[in-house]
Write a protein that binds this DNA or RNA. Structure first.
Lengths: 119, 119
DNA sequence: TCTCTAGGTAAGTCATCCCTTACGTTAGTG
DNA sequence: CACTAACGTAAGGGATGACTTACCTAGAGA
């Protein structure tokens, strides 16, 4: 199980995503989160554990309370992933566009006569 | 169900994430994907449908084949989401740091005498 | 037209999960 | 020390979902 898999699996549940977004807005205690959620407090606890194990949040003890906050490294990793994906996709599209125009200008240079795209 | 929820739910399954990453690397037909996956071809079809409904991939017909490729808008939306999250978190951390040093320099200015953090 | 290939769909099963209630634990307070 | 507040954990149940096999459809080529 890679880090990315764990992160996406953690954010894959709508309730958990909502909790994550709330924590991302500002640090919250467990009770504060549960107040504004349609599920019980233990459920919130369990979701927070998953988010924590995925490296997306961290908790700080404050008396009997436990304050959860976003873990910047987690967000950074996801941000970088999509940045890379975006960049590579730009290149892929550019290459595809070049290939298409090249084929248009000089189709006979290609050995492909089936009409099918070469994937 | 928001767009973000659908996207994360789609990427939340490891098998589906693997399929998405394969398609993201370069366009693939369904059979090509299934060849390198530990699940059956119908399973891949079902995963691709979920990814498509989430707006992450698109398909192009090519004879009897169906070639799937990444949908740039989907990646862009996720990229922007984490960019924003990252920026806001930077600000949040800066604010927290400022507040901490301010409290250290002039603690009496605060009405909070409990020692608990004001969240 | 007959056949083959590629892929979507239906139905069913088994595992995984999400949530609840109940309980245990720790820290603050009188 | 007793009580409360805040939270984590255990156990169980009901629902979701991921996968399989079987079937159906559409396009390509003889």
């Amino acid at each position: 199980m890679t880090y990315l898999e764990k992160a996406f699996e953690a954010l894959g549940d709508p309730t958990r995503l909502a909790i994550f977004q709330r924590v991302a807005a500002r640090p919250h205690s467990v009770g504060e989160i549960a107040e504004h959620m349609p599920v019980s407090r233990p459920a919130v606890s369990q979701h927070l554990r998953v988010l924590k194990q995925a490296g997306l949040v961290a908790d700080v003890k404050d008396g009997t309370r436990r304050v959860y906050q976003v873990k910047p490294e987690g967000i950074d990793a996801l941000k970088k992933y999509f940045d890379q994906l975006w960049t590579r996709n730009l290149n892929a599209f550019k290459a595809a566009a070049d290939k298409a125009s090249e084929r248009k200008n000089n189709d006979s240079s290609s050995g492909n006569r089936t009409g099918k795209k070469v994937i």
